[in-house]
Every structure is written in structure tokens, then in C-alpha cells.
Design a protein around this nucleic acid. Structure first.
Length: 440
RNA sequence: GGAGAAGUGGCCGAGUUGGUUUAAGGCGUCAGUCUCGAAAACUGAUAUAUGGAAACCCGUAUCGAGGGUUCAAAUCCCUCCUUCUCCGCCA
């Protein structure tokens, strides 16, 4: 690894700024427009006032400290020359000390408020992102693959899975609750086959496989932008201030938190399989059946660290790599460019890949590929050396792709009239069977 | 879980009776001299962030993190984090 060193600078760590406040200072109109397009209500004028207040306080405190340091040197000299220090002199220094302390308290309060604001300001959408209110304003870019014509009425994947005895939702709800799945028999083989197929395919394209913990600390969640806004959607450990990861994006991207790379290290591409955990708060009653919106699901994630000037192409190739596995599986999908009102908090531009579910008759998100630009890098303090200067890297990630939903799509798109499932060609070397047949 | 040790610049490593240390020294890196070129040798430079300044430069902060004591903290006190060693438990 060409990481040249890790930061140990307390100052930077403490004053890490989210969306760089300079952007807001210098181009307030742009930021205001961006927030409007995102339907976000942030009081940016208040933030700017706080920023001005902070600047004044800092310079005041620095001047006071300068004075104190000088006087302190005086004391040192006098002592060395064995001269006594006058009581008045000490009193004067103490007065300065009090002043510093007082202003410091004000500064701390101001900085806390600024940090509170900044941590909650989402990324600025890219120019190419369509302006829109919600998912209905997303743009379908293209359809890939042909929808199969059925000679019978296709079933839902949970019906097929339970009948084949490869899915068991009753067992899952008994041991854990709703929104969980138990895989059985060939279902387990299929799940592992999908995972292996995804990993192998992406590794051939230069992604490095990495396996990371499923529990991460608060700093990691802040780094990729899950915190502070999305805490409600995370599973949290009661005694340890640790969170279950909602995606491998979190641990994988945070691997390089507080790092500076040589330029030659970029682009750096990772592929990681992990289980993912989401509370799905606020989605009660939606997609309660099957594998679509579970609290725990498997996913293969792609993460990239790149130079800023290449990030547009890197997003396109990320989308291509994600779509590629679906095409190899011969699963039809459509590519959607999310509008300003629908992109995630940290993202600047996002494409969703939506898989066709024949039984359900709908397209469902199976991958979300985003360019975060320097938004996450600023939160995580990830830089690279460009002409000996430190610049923030750009980060991107996307599912490559969600395993559970792929499982569901295979069941619904590859189902046969007799209730069996034919296994997609590319998976057969992993499953070592061609079909899953009903038990007798 | 119990007991102990440690955390200093890109790396190694001094400094812990508080104040000429603006963090010694070495390695590495960069530039120069030398050379056809390189190595070696020699000379010099070499942390980060931030504020002011066109620039020279000046200020502030940072020795794992956060507090405290003091005129003054790498150094003393408290809390936390991480790593290592031993014991216990455990797949």
C-alpha cells in the first residue's frame, strides 16, 4: 500500500469541516440553490453569521495568547536572573488568562453550533443531475435486456421459494421477527453462488477484495455520512456505541480515513461482500413479504478512491460494472438517473439500477451508484499528493449488486411452469446444479 | 474481565526534577556541489492546520484524544482511546 502516512494532527481532527464552509462563504447563492433543489431547509445566513462570529473570536483569542506567551517569557527571564516577579505583573497575566478562558467558552459554543449546521448540510448535486422533487422526477436513462414472455402467470419469489423449500419466512419471524429470511437447502447454495459470482467478476476488473467488520464506531458512520442524520435507520449496540453497518461502504471507505496517498495509488478500487443491517424505520407495511426490504441482507459493494478529474468516467464505469453482472445473469433492468430531490445525503450524483421482478411486475432498486466527490473525503480527511500538495480524493461507491434482491429476481424471472427454477448459465459452475426442482 | 507497560514529526528515537528545545540526533526525501551519468561524500532544505500580508514575513494551535493545575505543560493530575505482555474466559 502506498499510503505515505496517517494523520495524527489533533487540530485537523477536531476541526474537520463537512461541506467546506469556504464553499458556503464564497458561493452562498450556489449552495442556497442546491439546498432548494434538494428540498432541504437550512438556515445558511445564520451559519454565515456564526462563521463571522467565530473568526472574530479566534483572532481575539490569538492576540491574547500572544500577549500571554510574551509575558510568560518575561517571567522566565526574571526567574533565571533570580529577580522577583511583581505581584501586579502576575495579576495582569491572570486577567488575560481569564479573558482567554471566557472567550474560549464563547468560541467553543459557536463552533459547536457551526459543526451542528455543517454536519447536516448535504452534498451539492452535480450540474448534470435533473432538478426534481421526488422519485417521480427521476430520469430513466435506458432499458437493458428483454422482458421474458410467460405462458403462465408468474409468481412472487416468496411463493416460489417457500414451495421449493429454499426460503422460510415463518422460521425467520419466529427466531428474529418480521423482515428477516431463513435460507434452506439449494437456497443457501444459490445465495453463495451469487456472492462468489459477483466477487469473481469484479475482481477480474481490478477491484481488490476486502472483508471488514460488520460493527463500526460513530466516527466511521460520520465519515461516510450516515450520521448524524440517519441514526434512526441504524441498528445500534446498547452498551458499546457501535453500529451494525447498513452497507460495506462504511467500513471499506473508512479504511483510509485520515490518510494521504501517493498520486500513483489512485484509482483504488475495492469489492467487498458483507451482510447489511437496516432498521427500515418509517417503511412499516411496505414490502413486508419476501426478500425485498429485510433488516438483514447480503450485498457485494464496490468502492472507489479516485482523482477528482476522473470521477465522471469512474461513475460511468462503476455503473457499467454493476450492470454487467446483471447482463451476465440475463436479468433485465433499467438505469435511472436520480433527481435532486431523491439523491442521498452524501451524494452529488446517483444512478440506480432497477431490476425487473416478473412476478411482482415492477422494477426494484438493486444497485445505487454514487459519486460523492470530496464530500466524504472531507469528512474522513482522505487526501492525495498532487504536485506535492495535498488535495482531497473523490470517493464513489455502488452496489455490485444486492444479493437478496438478485436472489428474488432469479426466482421470479427464471421460474418455470412446473414450479422449478432454472439456474442462470453463469451461476452453474458455482451451484453445481442446473435447476431447483420441487420436492416430492 | 483482572494485572502491568507503552503511545513524540514520513520512519526510528532522545527529551518526563515544568521555562535557551522555535521538539536533540539518525534514517528517508528534495535541491545543490562533484560526475559523461550514477553511487559515495559534502553543503543546505525538509511537519500539519489556520489567521493577517501582493511578497518577505509575523501570529496561533498541534508530542494518542479530551479536560485540569500553573505566569508557563511533551513533561504534573484526571478521564477516555489504541497497542503490547501476562492471567482468566472463549469459537
Amino acid at each position: 500500500m502506498v499510503v505515505i502516512f496517517e494523520y495524527v494532527n489533533a487540530n485537523e481532527r477536531g476541526k474537520r469541516e463537512m461541506l467546506d464552509i469556504r464553499v458556503i462563504r464564497e458561493d452562498i447563492k450556489k449552495v442556497k440553490r442546491a439546498m432548494l433543489n434538494r428540498n432541504q431547509n437550512v438556515n445558511l445566513d445564520r451559519l454565515l453569521n456564526l462563521d463571522r462570529e467565530r473568526k472574530i473570536l479566534v483572532s481575539e483569542i490569538e492576540q491574547l495568547r500572544f500577549k500571554r506567551n510574551k509575558w510568560s517569557e518575561e517571567v522566565c527571564k526574571l526567574k533565571r536572573e533570580n529577580k522577583s516577579v511583581s505581584v501586579d505583573f502576575v495579576a495582569d497575566i491572570n486577567a488575560i488568562k481569564d479573558k482567554i478562558q471566557k472567550q474560549n467558552k464563547r468560541l467553543l459554543a459557536t463552533e459547536n453550533q457551526i459543526e451542528y449546521f455543517l454536519a447536516r448540510i448535504p452534498n451539492i448535486p452535480d450540474e448534470s443531475v435533473p432538478i426534481g422533487k421526488d422519485a417521480r422526477d427521476n430520469k430513466v436513462v435506458k432499458f437493458v435486456g428483454d422482458l421474458r414472455k410467460f405462458s403462465f402467470k408468474p409468481k412472487y419469489h416468496w411463493e416460489i421459494g417457500e414451495k421449493l423449500d429454499i426460503l422460510d419466512f415463518n422460521a425467520a419471524s419466529k427466531i428474529s421477527g418480521s423482515r428477516f429470511a431463513v435460507l434452506k437447502n439449494e437456497g443457501c447454495d444459490l445465495e453463495r453462488a451469487i456472492i462468489s459470482f459477483f466477487l469473481d467478476t469484479h475482481k477480474k476488473k481490478g477491484y481488490k477484495e476486502i472483508m471488514t467488520p460488520y460493527l463500526v464506531n460513530r466516527a466511521s458512520m460520520r465519515g461516510t455520512g450516515q450520521l448524524p442524520n440517519l441514526e434512526e435507520d441504524l441498528f445500534k449496540c446498547a452498551n458499546d456505541d457501535l453500529f451494525l453497518i447498513p452497507t460495506a461502504e462504511v467500513p471499506v471507505t473508512n479504511i483510509h480515513r485520515d490518510c494521504v496517498f501517493e498520486e500513483s495509488f489512485l484509482p483504488q478500487k475495492y469489492v467487498s461482500y458483507s451482510a447489511c443491517f437496516r432498521r427500515e424505520a418509517g417503511s412499516y407495511g411496505r414490502d413486508t413479504k419476501g426478500l425485498i426490504r429485510n433488516h438483514q441482507f447480503d450485498k457485494v459493494e464496490l468502492v472507489k478512491f479516485v482523482k477528482p478529474e476522473t470521477s465522471d468516467e469512474e461513475l460511468e464505469s462503476l455503473v457499467f460494472d454493476a450492470g454487467n453482472v446483471l447482463e451476465l445473469l440475463k436479468l433485465p433492468y433499467r438505469l435511472v438517473l436520480l433527481c435532486t430531490g431523491d439523491i442521498g445525503f452524501s451524494s452529488s450524483k446517483t444512478y440506480d439500477l432497477e431490476i425487473w421482478l416478473a412476478g411482482d411486475g415492477t422494477y426494484r432498486e438493486i444497485s445505487s451508484c454514487s459519486n460523492f466527490k470530496d464530500f466524504q473525503a472531507k469528512r474522513m480527511n482522505i487526501k492525495y499528493l498532487k504536485d506535492k500538495k495535498r488535495e482531497f480524493v473523490y470517493t464513489l461507491n455502488g452496489s455490485g449488486v444486492a444479493v437478496g434482491r438478485t436472489f428474488a429476481a432469479i426466482l421470479e424471472n427464471y421460474q418455470q411452469e412446473d414450479g422449478s427454477i432454472s439456474i442462470p448459465e453463469v451461476l452453474r459452475k458455482y451451484t453445481e446444479f442446473d435447476a431447483i426442482n420441487p420436492k416430492k
